[in-house]
């Protein structure tokens, strides 16, 4: 039997097992510590959505078709503050740029000979921090031509699990003691902070994070509706400047 797999990928899985079996393995992979942490973040989102005035159906719809929590929070904030549609769209566009390099890096891992492009376009909707981290960690144990099924299992499980969490929490958040509700809402920024810090590639991204965390709240009362945009651009450009400066220093010395 000839193999088309690249030699550096370690394959411990049995390629003769059918796709559905690998889909189920993806389901099992999704039920994990990162999956649990994502539940925490979505419990927070459900409480925030409820407090902001989004209906449950709107919150479920938003989660299913966007599937990127930072974008959802940004959109929610824009809807609540009365931002115009173009302003909201620009803020979400900038928030979601980060998904492109994630997709760019996962697609070559997932593509086998004969993978149809529409499958990749469909699966790309599942790409967000949690599924990306899980998949990039496990792919080397999955035969190349079963990876799309495996990733489909991870993505479908995470999405449907979070929709369930959303529905349950949205209904019960009102009856929770305030301290518990506060703790749940606090899970979302904590999860963002740690997952974003872990996934940052270069030191410049860490600098951008620290600057953005300070600038966001500072600009919030000054530029309502444009605070996130302004903080992202100013802090991002500043961090990029540091990156260029350190590159030049690296070349000079």
């Amino acid at each position: 039997m000839t193999s088309s797999y690249s030699p550096e990928t370690l394959e411990t899985g049995d390629p003769s097992q059918p796709g559905p079996r690998w889909f189920l393995r993806g389901v099992r992979t999704a039920i994990s510590l990162p999956g649990l942490l994502l539940c925490g973040a979505f419990i927070g989102f459900a409480a925030i959505a409820r407090d902001t005035g989004l209906t449950l159906v709107e919150a479920v719809f938003m989660t299913a078709i966007i599937w990127a929590l930072p974008a959802q929070i940004v959109l929610l904030g824009a809807m609540a503050s009365g931002a115009s549609l173009p302003a909201a769209a620009i803020a979400v566009t900038l928030t979601s740029v980060r998904l492109m390099p994630m997709v760019v890096s996962i697609v070559p891992e997932m593509r086998a000979r004969g993978t149809r492009p529409w499958v990749l376009y469909l699966l790309s909707h599942f790409v967000a921090v949690t599924s990306w981290v899980l998949a990039m960690d496990r792919f080397r144990h999955v035969p190349r031509d079963r990876r799309t099924a495996f990733y489909g299992g991870i993505g479908a499980t995470l999405v449907s699990g979070m929709l369930l969490v959303l529905a349950v929490v949205y209904g019960t958040a009102a009856v929770l003691p305030p301290m518990l509700a506060a703790g749940l809402v606090f899970l979302t920024p904590s999860y963002f902070l740690f997952s974003l810090w872990s996934s940052a590639r270069e030191r410049a991204s860490h600098a951008a994070m620290l600057a953005g965390m300070v600038l966001g709240p500072l600009l919030h009362p000054l530029l309502p509706g444009f605070d996130l945009l302004a903080a992202g651009i100013i802090a991002g450009l500043g961090a990029f400047g540091l990156h260029l400066a350190s590159e030049r220093r690296g070349q000079g010395g």
Binding site: I73, L94, M209, G216, A231, G232, A235, G236, F240
Partner: peptide
């Protein structure tokens, strides 16, 4: 790198506001 910096800073601003 620039794209990642701006996107990261924007999400960080979200964290700060939350």
């Amino acid at each position: 790198v620039l794209v990642r910096c701006v996107a990261t800073a924007l999400v960080a601003a979200v964290i700060g506001n939350l």
